[in-house]
């Protein structure tokens, strides 16, 4: 995925939407103190990560809508991941992975770091998880 794909997140979400059947949310517990910034790759291996598997279509659609409304631009600062939203297809393959960091702006889409200009995703996470 390249920088252009980051700015076309809406298109990526549209392309992924018909294939998504489940959403796995990874969340580090609030106030967990990590020795170093947590990368998206490391997030899923954390011992104390909270995992939620969501199959409810309405919830998945609301997450996709929030992501589609989040306008990201490429960034180069390492993410301090707190949330990972991994969308899977019926075969359990990843269709889209979106990560959010400790602060409102930072994030990652698949393997590309980004900074969210509009953070509907942040609002969705706040509403759902009270962060």
């Amino acid at each position: 995925m390249n920088d252009r794909a980051v700015s076309d997140l809406g298109e990526r979400v549209s392309a992924a939407r018909p294939n998504v059947t489940t959403l796995t949310v990874y969340r580090l517990p609030p106030r967990l103190r990590a020795l170093v910034k947590v990368s998206a790759v490391a997030l899923e291996s954390y011992a104390d990560v909270q995992v939620e598997h969501i199959a409810d279509a309405a919830t998945i659609v609301s997450a996709l809508d929030a992501i589609a409304r989040s306008r990201p631009r490429p960034a180069h600062e390492a993410l301090d991941a707190r949330f990972g939203l991994v969308f899977l297809d019926a075969a359990g393959e990843r269709v889209l992975s979106v990560y959010k960091g400790a602060f409102a702006l930072d994030g990652q889409i698949d393997e590309v770091l980004c900074e969210y200009e509009e953070t509907a995703l942040h609002a969705w996470l706040t509403q759902r998880y009270g962060v």
């Binding site: 103190r33 490391a42 954390y46 011992a47």
Partner: peptide, 16 residues
């Protein structure tokens, strides 16, 4: 080693 990290989780009061 597949959890190659250190942290303190106040919710569980656990040092990893």
């Amino acid at each position: 080693d597949n959890e190659r990290h250190d942290n303190y989780d106040p919710a569980k009061n656990r040092i990893n």
